[in-house]
């Protein structure tokens, strides 16, 4: 069996359509495979998305592997990938980085004795395989070189590149990958599942976010009101989540939600790199901060230097007025 050059791995816990992140990972994978003189392949574990074939063709995928799995716990995923790697020996395995793959990718690397780099934003092939990854919350980028020719495991940051169709679509070969996952016991048993309810910040088109500059817990309602008036969702910086002004599901940033709304309005947020890691991909950032030198203004498209407690109520009024126009 020939060995695989670049493989994107996607876990598909439920039926649905291909997430945007997978398309951008395929775009990046296609360029990497081409520079290595090989093919791009895609491995889907679980429920195959209804548009997988179409996306694979659009992205120039040569082979689309699919393996059904009853359950997608981390142990199952690592076992399936281990079996896949034993059969296909990929040079590079790409993961779209999310909560689960942050466990599965490094565990697979450990299982294979492979090298791993997470938070990748670019891949360079030349004499050696090099990956640029974000560090210090985004304040710096590190360039890592893989030292051997073995499999390289790479976790891609959600906004590493924009998806782009291949010059000409491919006719992906569909391959069923069979491996016995029945014997894999999940060592971690969920006894009380997380109760996700309502829309997710990751999908919001408009986010109004507040930080420590709000001054006190009782002022957070201005964020919620403005979010509602604009038809968006409320976000927060980590310190105010830690303080309990709102719950963790609202935290934006490196260790919170990675969002990409059309508008991110930040009030009383300083713009620390770890916060910006979760909103830097917004199409437009508007910021209210009383400090004209605040870091947030480096990223913002629109800036207001002033007291957010004075501006927010007026924004709520203005947003409501324009809605009624």
């Amino acid at each position: 069996m020939g060995s695989t050059t670049v493989l994107l791995y996607s876990a598909c816990p439920r039926e649905g359509s291909t997430p945007e992140e997978a398309r951008s990972a395929l775009t990046l994978g296609r360029a990497t495979a081409a520079s290595l003189g090989g093919d791009l392949e895609w491995f889907l574990l679980g429920a195959k998305p209804s548009d997988a074939e179409a996306i694979a063709a659009e992205q120039g995928v040569a082979r689309l592997h699919h393996c059904a799995a009853p359950e997608l716990g981390a142990d199952t995923q690592v076992a399936a990938l281990e079996a896949f790697c034993a059969a296909h020996a990929p040079r590079i395995i790409l993961f779209c980085q999310d909560f689960d793959s942050r466990v599965v990718a490094p565990r697979l690397a450990g299982r294979l004795g492979a090298g791993v780099v997470m938070n990748a934003v670019a891949i360079e092939t030349g004499e050696a395989l090099r990956v640029t990854a974000s560090a210090f919350g985004g304040d710096t980028r590190g360039v890592y070189e893989f030292t051997g020719d073995g499999t390289a495991v790479i976790g891609l940051q959600p906004n590493a590149c924009l998806p782009e169709a291949a010059e000409s679509p491919s006719a992906p070969e569909s391959c069923a990958f069979e491996t016995d996952l029945g014997a894999v016991g999940e060592r971690i048993v969920v006894i009380e599942a997380a109760s996700s309810e309502g829309p997710r910040l990751e999908e919001a088109e408009i986010i109004v976010s507040g930080g420590r500059g709000l001054g006190a817990s009782e002022n957070y309602h201005w964020i919620e009101e403005l979010a509602e008036a604009l038809g968006g969702m409320a976000g927060a910086s980590r310190p105010i989540v830690d303080e309990g002004w709102t719950d963790a599901s609202h935290q934006v940033g490196l260790t919170g939600r990675i969002t990409r709304p059309a508008l991110y309005l930040a009030a009383g947020i300083s713009g620390a790199s770890q916060h910006m890691a979760g909103c830097g991909a917004a199409k437009a950032i508007a910021a209210i901060n009383k400090d004209p030198d605040a870091a947030i203004f480096r990223y913002a498209r629109y800036g207001i230097v002033g007291d957010c407690l004075e501006i927010l109520p007026e924004l709520v009024r203005a947003a409501k007025e324009q809605r009624h126009e």
Partner: peptide
């Protein structure tokens, strides 16, 4: 046991174009 080497580190540019209102 080494698999990766940090060969470079740099500070990324931030394009700044804020319109103050």
């Amino acid at each position: 046991a080494t698999r990766t080497k940090l060969v470079q580190q740099f500070v990324p540019d931030v394009e700044q174009n804020c319109e103050f209102i």
